[in-house]
C-alpha cells in the first residue's frame, strides 16, 4: 500500500520541454511562480494561464494525467477556498448562524484558489518533464556558486540522489516488516493514538537497523568504486546549454518583462 504513493511522477515522453536543460526548467518554474505573485487580478492570472497552457501543450503530457496529479492536494485547495469564503470581512451576501459569506470573500476565495491551482500545476509541469536525477543535477550546477562559501553542494546532491534510489527500496521493506510483524500477531489498526504509536516500534527499529546496514554496505561499495567526493569527478553527460536552452531563457526574460509591465494595467 505504501508503494502506491508517488511523488512528482515523471511522464516519459519525448518533447521539447522534456529535452530542455533542467537548469532552464528550474529557473522557468521560479520565474512563473514570481509572476503569479506579481499579479493580483484575474486578468493577470489569465496571462499566466496562457503561458502555462502553451508549455503544457508543448510538453505532450496529457491533460488528464496533469489533473490526476492534483488529487492529493485537493483537500488543501478546498480548505483555502472555504477559509477565504467564510473568513473575509466585508459585504455579507449569505448568512447561516455564525457562518457568513461576503462578496469580498467570494472574490478572494476564487482568486487564491486559482493562484494555488496554477502554482501547483506549474511546478508539477517541471516534475512531469524532468527526471529526479536531472533535477538533482540541475540543482547541483545552479547552486555551485554556494560551494565557494563552503556549502557542500556536491555532497547534498549526492545525498539527494541516493535518497531517490533508496526510497522505493525502504518503502518496500517497510511493507515487508509490517507483514512479518502482523504474522506474529501485531495489530497496527486498533487502539488509541498512543497505542498505535507504540505498535510502530516493532516496525521502526528493524527499519532503522536495515537503513544503517544498507548505508554501511553502500559506503563500502562507493569506496570500492573510487568515490572520493566531488573533487576531480567528471560526468558522463555534463549539462550543456544548447541553442534551444538559450532561446527558452530569452522567452522567459520576455515573459517576466511583460508581466512587470502589464502589472500596472491588469
Amino acid at each position: 500500500m505504501l508503494r502506491e504513493i508517488t511523488i512528482g511522477q515523471y511522464y516519459p515522453v519525448s518533447s521539447l520541454i522534456h529535452r530542455l536543460d533542467p537548469r532552464v526548467k528550474i529557473i522557468g518554474t521560479l520565474v512563473y511562480i514570481v509572476s503569479l505573485f506579481l499579479f493580483d487580478s484575474f486578468a493577470g492570472l489569465a496571462v499566466a494561464v496562457v503561458f502555462l497552457g502553451a508549455l503544457l501543450f508543448l510538453s505532450k503530457v496529457p491533460l488528464r494525467y496533469t489533473l490526476k496529479g492534483l488529487k492529493p492536494i485537493l483537500v488543501l485547495l478546498i480548505m483555502t477556498v472555504l477559509f477565504n469564503f467564510f473568513l473575509t470581512p466585508g459585504e455579507v451576501i449569505w448568512k447561516f448562524g455564525v457562518f457568513k459569506i461576503t462578496k469580498e470573500g467570494l472574490y478572494r476565495g476564487a482568486f487564491f484558489g486559482c493562484r494555488l491551482l496554477l502554482l501547483i500545476l506549474g511546478s508539477s509541469l517541471m516534475t512531469f518533464t524532468t527526471t529526479p536525477v536531472q533535477l538533482t543535477d540541475g540543482l547541483e550546477r545552479l547552486l555551485k556558486p554556494l560551494s565557494w562559501i563552503g556549502v557542500p553542494v556536491h555532497d547534498v546532491a549526492m545525498m539527494m540522489s541516493i535518497a531517490l534510489r533508496f526510497i522505493p527500496i525502504l518503502l518496500e521493506e517497510t511493507d515487508k516488516i509490517m507483514k512479518a510483524q502482523q504474522a506474529r500477531g501485531a495489530d497496527f489498526e486498533s487502539g488509541n493514538i498512543l497505542r498505535r504509536v507504540k505498535a510502530m516500534v516493532p516496525i521502526f527499529i528493524p527499519l532503522l537497523l536495515s537503513a544503517f546496514r544498507r548505508a554501511f554496505d553502500l559506503a563500502l561499495a562507493m569506496e570500492a568504486r573510487c568515490y572520493r567526493g566531488g573533487k576531480g569527478r567528471t560526468k558522463m553527460r555534463p549539462l550543456r546549454f544548447k541553442l534551444r536552452d538559450w532561446l527558452a531563457l530569452v522567452y522567459l526574460a520576455v515573459y517576466l518583462t511583460a508581466v512587470i509591465i502589464l502589472r500596472r494595467w491588469l
Binding site: T131, P132, V133, S161, I162, L164, R165, I169, R213, R214, D217, L218, A221, M222, R225, C226, Y227, R228, G232, R233, T234, K235, M236, R237, P238
Partner: peptide
C-alpha cells in the same frame, strides 16, 4: 547484496559512476 551496491536510479548512470569518480572524459 545486489541492492546495496547500486548507487544511481538508472542502470547506465550507475555503470558510469566508477569512471566518473576516476575523472574519465565524458
Amino acid at each position: 547484496n545486489p541492492d546495496n551496491q547500486i548507487i544511481a536510479t538508472v542502470v547506465e548512470d550507475d555503470v558510469a559512476f566508477g569512471p566518473e569518480n576516476l575523472g574519465v572524459p565524458a
